[in-house]
Design a protein around this nucleic acid. Structure first.
Lengths: 123, 123
DNA sequence: CTGTATCCCGAGAGATACTG
DNA sequence: CAGTATCTCTCGGGATACAG
């Protein structure tokens, strides 16, 4: 089995997603979303970042983009089948993060406190 | 359930890991590893990057670090219980990437070809 | 052997303004 | 409404040199 490396380009999106990549995926869980709808849902994401994330996800086949030449214009985004599989993985990640939030938080505090003590020169 | 956002700091490591973070985790699968052992195994990772990844993983409680004041010095790294759970998630990610490598690759080619055609002005 | 200290660089993030 | 175009800035990555 090929080993996990950041240089395996095809894996890049998954191994080291952009800041908003997975956030988009999970927000498409319920179905079709429009641009500004996503934007509101996701909180304070800059237009440029959202637009970039959407384009990359479309390029890689995780979402579809349907544009209607109406006035005002309308663009709809949806998960593809592949996108729904990515959603499963993103969910696993999310669940793991939620489960272990507190453990990580207190581990950090312990570590930082120990470092602070060492820096003080005491002990 | 809290929604997934990049601003949830506790989730950061998991939602958006550093370039080498998960690579370290999977390479610790077999058990105790020393610094240069990891380095060789992982391929061409700069010392600084590996060192930084290890420190962050230790800080967050995913690995342990044991230093021996011998000459030459020796430092051993191991997964914690939490780290082994992260390994499971990393594996899921890795498997997903491997399974869908070709699909993503060809999706990209289609997308780029379409873009190139559009740019050429033909069609 | 196992690191830390610098320096440099590019990619990505964000703010702002403008367009079809 | 749904973007693109700039511009700036920070952060992380990588190379190199040095240290305990």
């Amino acid at each position: 089995m090929p080993s996990l490396t950041p240089h395996s380009l095809d894996d890049l999106l998954v191994v080291r997603p952009g800041k908003w990549t997975l956030v988009v995926i999970v927000h498409l869980r319920e179905g079709t979303m429009r641009f500004n709808e996503l934007r509101r849902d996701m909180g304070d994401v800059p237009q440029k970042s959202l637009s970039a994330a959407l384009r990359e996800l479309e390029r890689d086949g995780f979402i579809t983009r349907r544009a209607y030449a109406t006035i005002p214009p309308r663009v709809e985004y949806d998960l593809t089948e592949l996108g729904r599989e990515l959603l499963d993985v993103a969910d696993a990640l999310h669940q793991f993060a939620l489960r272990n939030r507190h453990a990580v938080r207190s581990a950090r505090e312990r570590f930082d406190r120990a470092g602070a003590d060492a820096a003080t020169g005491r002990n």
